[in-house]
């Protein structure tokens, strides 16, 4: 009964965050807005009962991709001092309160656990192992390519 309202809030946040990606002036702020979209999509997965997929979404997108993007883009910017300390404190308190409310007050009955991934998992590694290997090779090739580009960039610098 509370799920439609929770989903409405999360959907509104997703739409607002995705607009922010294109509206903000600085690229780093756009990446932060994209990170918010990733977190809110994980919340959608949670509301659908797919807890493991929500966790994987947080690990892969927020913990991996967003972190990588932010570090790479922030490293190119010359940031020497904090610009707005009161905004920093307000945002930290708001995020802490929001995340604390979700963690401590989210009723367990809200999330209907789904064991669909448990039922499907053994079949994945039997029938789709070739596709999984192809995906792993794709990622490997992309990593090697980025390392080569960085090596060429290092030659230009030195």
């Amino acid at each position: 009964m509370i799920e439609p309202y929770a989903f409405a809030i999360v959907a509104a946040l997703i739409v607002a965050s995705s607009f922010l990606v294109f509206v903000v002036k600085r690229i780093l702020h756009a990446v932060i807005a994209l990170t918010l979209v990733f977190i809110e999509s994980a919340l959608v997965f949670l509301l659908l009962g797919q807890t493991m997929l929500a966790m994987l979404q947080l690990f892969v997108f927020v913990g991996g991709l967003s972190t990588y993007l932010m570090v790479a883009i922030a490293a190119e910017m010359k940031i020497s001092r904090m610009e707005n300390v009161p905004l920093l404190i307000i945002l930290a308190v708001v995020f802490f309160a929001g995340m604390g409310a979700i963690i401590f007050y989210l009723p367990t009955s809200l999330v209907q656990q789904s064991n669909s991934i448990t039922l499907a998992a053994p079949q994945i590694f039997q029938d789709y192992y070739a596709l999984l290997y192809a995906i792993a090779l794709l990622l490997f090739a992309a990593t090697i390519g980025s390392a080569l580009v960085a090596r060429r960039f290092a030659r230009l610098v030195m």
Binding site: F61, A72, A121, I124, S146
Partner: peptide, 28 residues
């Protein structure tokens, strides 16, 4: 539940990761 949905999800994750690697390499 069908496993093809999860495999498609893995493929989309991999494509997004590769795109981010390309973004960073191009940006730098």
């Amino acid at each position: 539940p069908s496993p093809s949905g999860i495999v498609l999800l893995f493929a989309i994750w991999a494509i997004a990761a590769v795109e981010v690697i390309a973004i960073v390499a191009f940006y730098v």
